[in-house]
Amino acid sequence: MIKAILLAALVLGGMGVLFGIILGIASKVFHVDKDERVGMILQVLPCANCGGCGYAGCSAYAEAVVKGTASPSGCIVGGETCVSKVADIMGVQATTKEKKVARVKCGGNCFEAPAKYEYIGVQSCVSAARIAGGPKNCEYGCFGLGSCAKVCPADAISMSNGIAYVIESKCVACGLCVSTCPRRIIELVPASKEYTVVCNSKAKGAKVTKVCDVGCIGCKMCEKACPNGAITVEDNRAKIDYTKCTNCGLCSEKCPRKIIKKF
């Protein structure tokens, strides 16, 4: 009886010790030198693995920073604090990037910009865009099928009344929605700038008024109102140059369609 227990313990214990020794030796033999800075950088990164920096994930980015192929200020999501911490670890001066947010340049919801036809296919904007130019009368507007909301790693986009809204407090400015939108109506703008033209239509004024109640008609009222020359009408739509914009809000007041919105 005792002998059987001893034998079992001995065999299992022996195997355990043997494997332990083998693993111990292996960890020495197969030791791979890893730069400890990779781990340190990884700790200060947000680890959302959004890919906004252009790398496969936070660890891939951390390795690239240590190798010197990526800039320490590549992480937009982490903001200034993260950039300066990464720069500290790498021992270089931080060049901070301005915090940005995504904004949807369309305000034509299902009441103001009616649909051309009822779309009941695959719930994806890319698929919808292939059918007769999309289910909206306006050739430039948001479909509201939420492809941007699906790709958002931060859950920052919500859909209501058939258009997308960005919840700015949650937005990490990774740019995934910008590249996903088949209509290219989402834009990354500096978070400090409060005004955005919520229309992307290149159509002429008369056509815009037919398909949407809140489309830009290119009347140039905003252009004349802006004291800094920051807003211009190109391709029949108003466009704000954020390097010149001072958040004065005069354009928003003058706009007859009320589509230069304060965020």
């Binding site: 195997m15 494997f19 693993l23 960890s27 197969f30």
Partner: peptide
């Protein structure tokens, strides 16, 4: 016991 150690060993060997 064998499988767990084996996987560990293989992981280390592959990495190197």
């Amino acid at each position: 016991l064998i499988i767990a150690s084996l996987v560990q060993f293989v992981e280390m060997a592959l990495m190197k």
